[in-house]
Every structure is written in C-alpha cells, then in structure tokens.
Design a protein around this nucleic acid. Structure first.
Lengths: 351, 351
DNA sequence: CTGAAAGCGCTTACAG
DNA sequence: CTGAAAGCGCTTACAG
C-alpha cells in the first residue's frame, strides 16, 4: 500500500479526510488536521502529481517552450533572468514553471503540439516567435491559455508581450541624429524572427522623419553573436563611406565589434558611436563604456507571468489584464557623455 | 465526452482496442489499427498524459534541474548544448526532457524534493552540484533514478558525470611548464561548487610534480563572468611578481582579461600566456587566438542521456553502463604556435 | 482479435 | 466534521 491510502490507514481515518486536511479545506477538525500534517511531514508524503492532475483536470504547471537552435534562440542568459521573474509570480499560486526545450533536430510545431494535446501543462509561454508562426493556431484551436514572447503576424486575438524594438530603434536614432549623426548603421538577424522586420520598419520610419536618406549598405544581416559583431565592424568600416554610428540590436555583438575596431586602429565612441540594445553585465567592462538601453529581465518575467495567468480562467479574476498585447519598454539612460563622438560632432558641425 | 472514449465511440469499438492500436500492440487487426490511427490523426487525438502516467506508473519524462542563481549556474549556453544532446538520446525512447529551473528565491533542496516526491518525472539529472550536496540523499531515499552533472563528496554509490577538471588543469600546467612557465595563475569560483576544490587540488599536485613552488597569490577567486576576467587581469598584473601564464577555468573571463591587458598596454599571449577551459564560439574572435580545450556539448549531452537511462530499470538493459562515474575528457589541440609567449620563452631560456 | 472490467492515486460532491 | 463512493483518462490482464 502506498500514497494517501497508507497515510490514511496509519492514522486510521479516511483518505478523503487526509486529502481535505492536506489541501487546507476549512471543514476539517483542527486536531485531525494537525495529526495529518505531522504524519505527512514525517513520512514525506506528497500527493502524486498524476493522480491529482487526472482528478482535478489541471496540472498546476505552466510550460515555457524555448528553442535550442542557436540561430533562433537568443542563446544566452536572457531566458534565465526571465524564468526567475515568471516563477516569482507562479509560485504565489502553487504553480510550477516547466521549461520545454525543443531540440534542434525537431520541428517546433509538432513538438509543441505533443505537449499541448497531452495536456501536460495548464498554460504555455512560447518564445522565438516567427513572423508567420503556426504554433499560435495550434494553441488557439486546442483552447490552451498561452502567451507569446514576441509578436507574430499570424492571428490577432492572442496575448503577447514583446520587447519594444520600435521604441528602442526610434529613440536610438533620434538621439544619434540629435548628436549630429547622419550615417547610422543597424544590425538585423538573419532568420525569420519577427523582431528583424519590426526593427527594419522602425529604422526606415525614423530616418524618414529626420529626412535622412536610407542606405541599404548600412543595414547588416549578421550572425547573432560576438563573432557577428566582429564581422559587422569589419564590413562597415570598409565601406566607401562608413557610418558614424551603429545600433546593435544584439548587444553581445559589441564585444566583437570593439575588438575589430581596435584591430583597425579605431576607437569605439570616437570613430564609431555604438548603441547597444541591452545594458547587460556581460558588456559592462567594455571601455569606453557602451551606451545601452536598460531592461530588467526579472521585471519582464514578472510581466510575462502575470500576463499568462491573466489568460487562464482560474486566475483571470486575480489578474484582470484581459488580452495582454504589450510592448515592453526599455529605457535609455539620460545624458551619456560618451554618447556622441566628438570627432564626428565636429565634422557634422562643419558640414 | 472526450478523449479516448470519444474516439472509440466514433469508431464504434472499445476504448481498449483504441488504446492497443495506438500503442502499437501486435494483437490488433491491421484494418482496425489503420482506422484508429487515421481517426486519431484526423481529430488530433493524443492520450492525456495524466491518465497515462497514473495507469502506467511512469511519466515518460526525465527532469533536468538547473539553478537560476547566477553565482551558482554557469549562466550561459553551456546547458542549451547539453540539453540538445540529452534529448537526442531520450527521444529514441519516447521520453521527454523537462527542465526544472530552481528560482533564486527558493532553496534547491525542497524544490527538488517537491518534484521527486510528486513523481513528476521518471528520472532526474541535477547540475550545479555542491561539495556537500544533500540533494543526493533525497534522490537516493526516494529511489528515483538520477545522475549528477558534477561530483560531490556526499555519498558514494550514485551516478555522476563531471567534466575532467583534473585532466584540464594537469594538461594545461604540463604544457605551460614545458614551455618554460614557472609562475602560472589560475582562477577559481567563489562559491562551494565542487569544481573549485577539484581544480585547486589538481593545480597543487601538478606544480608539485614539476617542483614549482605554490604561491597563493596566483590562485584567484573571482566572479564567474567577463567582468571577473577583467578583475583577474588587473589583480594579477599588479602583483610584485606577476605570472607569465594564466589558466581560466571559466573561459568567458578571457574577454574581460584581454581587455584589461590591452588597457594596461600588455599583449595577451606575449605578456601573459592564456589558456582557457573551453574553446567555445564566443571567444573565437579574440586575437591573438586563445588556447582552449575542446568540448562538444552535444556529445556530453549524449553521454549524460545514456548514463541516466542506464540508471533506469526499464532501460538498463539497453544501456548496460552500470553506475556511471565518469570524468568527461576535454582535449587540448596540439601544437598551438601562439601558446608559449616568445618573450617569456626567451626569458625562461635565459634563466 | 476484441470487449468488459479493474484500477492507477487522487479530489470532491454527497450523506450522515 | 467525517466516511464511502464516484470518477478523472487511460492501459492492461482476463475472458471469450
């Protein structure tokens, strides 16, 4: 004999009472509850999750699908910070966060479908959202509450949170133009992830607003890595007319970019103003210090956690956010002295 | 009506036959099986996991616990590569890999205990193994098959795979000494993770063998980050008698270290020979190229996957590895021209 | 080859 | 306040 039955027999009460005591139901004698809780602690009894899930129709778990493909995944601590924030919300309700890593060898769609149809989780967070992402339809048809981290142009009525790429690109270009820059480069990912389209559109719009001509040579699709940054620096500085500033949508590129600039005898900041997407610890030791937007991964995780709970009927009242469709803001620290390159400033002024 | 019942009613056969057909049992009429499979595909029927698990007493999932605490976790793509390798093994048997991220706010022990006692997984892989790690006892008492990634001095009869830190330290020092180095520094983590002890012991043993005196100033506990590498360079080069070589047990430190050396007007390789633990893509653009050991994360993942299956009674016959206790080797590419610093070589020869 | 039935470990109306 | 019973969705001996 095992499980709740054993505990009940040992205490000489029914399994129903044991269950009620353990689950904190009010209709249990205080003394009985005490005995049950003590015995459970003593024997290390914890209800079997499969039995519970089957009976309750809920797994008390939220899935978070990530992709292991390094070309798609932002193969870095981004997610670890977000997971932590999501958990801090879920644990308030006894929900667990379970990460589902889609292997590189498997198609993300059937992978997701398996977990969805098996009802392994009560809700799902998906990431690495593609411009056309069939996963959204799968989730909608299955009626499983979900949130996408990143937007898609597939479907409309679904909840998403995306980093505010428009805002970052727009603010970066505004600031650079204000500092006299006219030739501003930007990096884009090579794959079909939606942020590439969003950034490109925001970039063109911002330039147009400032009446700065668009030059396709300044928009570089590159590997999403330090190495990619190295190549970007190399390609940009070899142009007949190199840019005076660059916006790195993937901040880790700064490491390779700084290095290549040094090799070319150029000084970041002075010879090429660099703005990076996110001010993370990994690039803080660069010198001169890099200008980057601030993002709290933990806060983002909290936002994601609350947003996904808002999609779940059982928690919608507690988190009355409705269908969350939110661009998550990043902030650019004000008044960065190193931001505008003096040399360029002088040149821009002379023009 | 839902689930298997609905499918059975639609086909006008019993749920038992549907189940047998879907599970590939041989005792099903070929025509019947075909009808069942087609109907299942059409309606997108997938067995509910909780129902299955409860009945079978197995979840068909293997858990992989990681820690989100950046001081403990190697907060980087290490795990993503390993996950992929583990999955490639598990998927051969229809098992899923589920990542369990322990939040920074929670104690790893009760966190693990919850999942173990609930029987949410059939086996567990744990990482960030501490020198004294009570999780091992919890897993052993619960009788859940498990593997630790990293060793502990807690307990004996458990399966582990650990990177061969001894081998790396020993080989690195042998090579450096052969190239004339006598003052060789090494970095260690600040926390209680076991690799710190292992590396320190191997370092002392290797020096002793070469009759090189041990100098505590050359063993630096530092932040496990790029920033930590920056600090290491700074502290080392300010010593009255700086080292001529350094072994970075966390390779990403090389980025900060190279930078600080450059700032100090020193040249990596020439003024300080640098050996890094793992030759990963993130540091490949460093110049001069860094000397580092090679490790295939995917292969390691495969090894971990097979080792954990070997601990599970249902798979032990297929993977007759017994109680795996293995140091996973890393290889140092032979004949690296930049390995020994010419200046130092000259000086060493002159001594 | 198929169906009817038992039962995995729980939770929860329902009686009392 | 407690117990007895039903039933969540499956799989699997057991009959036939």
């Amino acid at each position: 004999m095992k499980g709740i039955r054993r505990l009940a027999d040992h205490l000489d009460i029914s399994i129903g009472t044991v269950s009620r005591a353990l689950n904190g139901r009010p209709d249990v004698n205080a003394e009985t509850r005490k005995r049950v809780l003590e015995a459970a602690a003593k024997f290390g009894y914890v209800p079997n999750q499969s039995g519970r899930s089957l009976r309750q129709g809920t797994t008390n778990a939220v899935g978070f699908m990530i992709e292991l493909n390094p070309e798609t995944a932002s193969n870095d601590p981004f997610f670890l910070g977000v997971f932590d924030g999501v958990q801090s919300v879920l644990q308030r309700h006894g929900l667990d966060l379970i990460i589902l890593p889609c292997p590189t060898s498997e198609d993300p769609l059937p992978y997701l479908q398996r977990f969805v149809m098996r009802r392994s989780v009560d809700a799902m967070i998906i990431s690495a959202t593609q411009r056309i992402d069939p996963r959204i339809e799968v989730l909608q048809k299955a009626g499983l509450p979900f949130l996408t981290l990143g937007r898609s142009s597939s479907g409309k009525g679904y909840a998403w949170i995306d980093l505010d790429f428009e805002g970052v690109v727009t603010e970066a270009i505004d600031r650079l133009v204000a500092d006299g820059h006219r030739r501003i480069a930007m990096t884009l990912p090579r794959n079909e992830i939606n942020l590439g389209y969003v950034c490109h559109a925001a970039y063109r719009a911002a330039l147009k607003r400032h009446r700065v001509p668009y030059d396709g040579d300044l928009v570089l699709r590159a590997g999403w890595s330090e190495q990619g940054g190295y190549e970007v620096a190399d390609r940009l500085m070899r142009l007949a007319e190199p840019p005076t500033a660059v916006l790195l949508v993937y901040e880790m590129m700064a490491i390779g970019l700084y290095q290549r600039l040094h090799e070319l005898g150029l000084t970041p900041g002075r010879d090429l103003a660099v703005v990076a997407f996110q001010d993370r610890a990994n690039i803080r030791m660069l010198s001169p210090p890099i200008t980057a937007f601030h993002l709290s991964l933990h806060d983002l995780g909290v936002g994601v956690g609350e947003a996904v709970l808002a999609q779940m009927p059982a928690y919608a009242e507690t988190y009355p956010l409705g269908l969350v469709q939110k661009r998550w803001p990043l902030t650019l620290p004000a008044g960065d002295a190193d931001f505008a390159a003096p040399a360029r400033k002088g040149r821009a002024a002379a023009e």
